[in-house]
């Protein structure tokens, strides 16, 4: 193998896992395509109105699978990520639901929003 290959960063098929972290890679992107596409549509105000008016019809129109639909019905962010959701697109859904990034942080870590904010303040020390 030439040195130039050895010295460069090569794609590692199984890097050591980072706890509590899902790397949004091609596999996740394939899995979550319908869910993320629906969330991307929420850039348009009319799309947000359509979702609010009839969530089930809106999810069906984008072809979400049953796990993705259940995660959306439950407003469960960790489940959405497990179904391939990407947080940049999910943030647009969270906006419709009136959830801030501190709210979704709190939900994912099993804290109240106030506790989560205190945790963030604690990082300064």
């Amino acid at each position: 193998m030439p040195d130039t290959i050895k010295q460069s960063e090569v794609a590692d098929p199984e890097p050591p896992a980072i706890p509590g972290t899902t790397i949004f890679d091609g596999r996740q992107a394939m899995k979550g395509y319908a869910l993320n596409k629906m969330c991307y549509s929420f850039n348009a105000a009319a799309a947000r109105d359509d979702f609010v008016a009839d969530e089930e019809a809106y999810m069906a129109a984008f072809g979400l699978n049953e796990d993705q639909k259940a995660a959306v019905r439950d407003r469960n962010v960790l489940d959405m990520i497990a179904c391939g959701g990407n947080v940049y697109y999910l943030a647009k859904l969270a906006g419709i639901l009136g959830l801030s990034v501190q709210d979704i942080g709190a939900q994912q870590t099993g804290m109240t929003t106030e506790e989560f904010k205190q945790k963030l303040l604690g990082a300064a020390r």
Binding site: I18, P19, G20, L78, A91, T109
Partner: peptide, 9 residues
């Protein structure tokens, strides 16, 4: 922002 490690700084 995402996962059980949300809030990591």
């Amino acid at each position: 922002l995402d996962g059980e490690r949300a809030g990591f700084i």
